[in-house]
């Protein structure tokens, strides 16, 4: 019996020692030898989604350039807000980073008071990719161009149904922006994500759809894409005009980047910025991105900050206009 007791006691103490070690290791964080341990790369969306596809592409390159394991963790919920609320509470040592999406991180705190983070709390290290948002109608529709759609909407305000993913989302803000610029009023019907909205659109439940470029390319044969939100002609869709070319000064899209908790050391941010942006120079990466319907972007920490600030102003104005109605 004594033997058994001894074993148990030794096991218990071993566990306690291990736990104590774990506590020590978690607290340390030194910018000089960053990264000193494995990095958790949190994706605030479901596995298999677009953010995940990008993170999985980056993972091997990051592990090579940073010299540490990169573990991808999923924290879906609230359209990303659950994951970002977690991010801002983490130790600012750069060993916990999270994917970010714009406009999500701007619109969520604007829409709800209890979002759990503020846009300013999120410190971007880089923005590396964008999905331009486009507007499309069914192949069978009599609407042939964005202008025809605008005219039709002017004739019968509120009767054209537009499918998109979520309210206070990239698609919703794109619609609000278009309505604002064109002086029209359409009926927005938010769906529970991009896939359900496409399903509803293909099933004829909505006349118009706002969709991510990747989805639009996938269903190119079933729809007539009227305009796309990229700055210049979007490579995978050479025949589709941009909103800007059609006279609407808007570039709707979803920008993806990576962020660290507030008060992270500048050197850590610089290391991450370089690590992420260098991936775009790797052979074949840009082509892969275009094939999947993404647009590569290269914004460092400073540039991303400015960009977020500028977008925040833009979106606050649009939302105020809506609430003022």
């Amino acid at each position: 019996m004594k033997k058994l007791t001894l074993i148990v006691v030794s096991m218990l103490s071993a566990v306690l020692v291990l736990a104590a070690c774990g506590a020590d290791a978690g607290g340390s964080g030194n910018a000089e030898n960053y990264p000193s341990e494995s990095i958790t790369y949190s994706i605030p969306f479901d596995p298999g989604g677009q953010s995940d596809v990008e993170a999985r592409r980056q993972q091997p390159y990051l592990e090579e350039s940073l010299g540490q394991d990169v573990m991808i963790q999923y924290k879906p919920g609230g359209g990303g807000s659950v994951g970002w609320s977690e991010l801002i509470g983490k130790d600012p040592d750069g060993h916990f980073i999270s994917g970010i999406n714009i406009p999500h991180i701007i619109l969520q705190p604007l829409a709800n008071d209890d979002t759990g983070y503020q846009t300013e709390d999120i410190v971007p290290a880089a923005i590396f990719q964008a999905t331009p948002i486009g507007i499309a109608v069914s192949k069978d529709s009599d609407i042939e161009s964005l202008e025809a759609l605008v005219n039709k909407a002017k004739e019968s305000p509120g009767s054209i149904t537009v499918a998109g993913s979520g309210r206070y989302s990239g698609h919703h803000i794109a619609l609000l922006q278009l309505q604002d610029l064109a002086g029209i009023d359409m009926q927005y019907v938010p769906f529970d994500g991009a896939a359900p909205s496409i399903q509803a659109f293909l099933g004829g439940n909505a006349e118009v759809i706002f969709g991510n470029s990747s989805d639009l390319i996938k269903y190119e044969d079933d729809m007539n894409i009227l305009a796309i939100g990229s700055e210049k002609t979007f490579k995978p869709l050479p025949d589709v005009p941009t909103f800007k070319e059609l006279g609407y000064d808007m570039t709707p899209g979803i920008d993806r980047g990576v962020a660290v908790p507030p008060e992270t050391n500048q050197e850590v941010i610089d290391t991450l910025e370089t690590a992420f942006l260098d991936i775009l120079d790797e052979e074949g990466v840009e082509d892969e991105m275009y094939n999947e319907g993404f647009e590569p972007k290269r914004m460092g920490h400073e540039e991303s900050l400015e960009y977020i600030e500028q977008k925040t102003e833009e979106y606050s104005r649009i939302l105020e206009n809506v609430e003022g109605d």
Binding site: M1, T5, I7, V8, M11, V15
Partner: peptide, 17 residues
Amino acid sequence: SKTKIVHVSISAVGVSV
């Protein structure tokens, strides 16, 4: 009670770990 303590501790530590 001695046997019990031993059994209980082993199972608790074993299952948890």
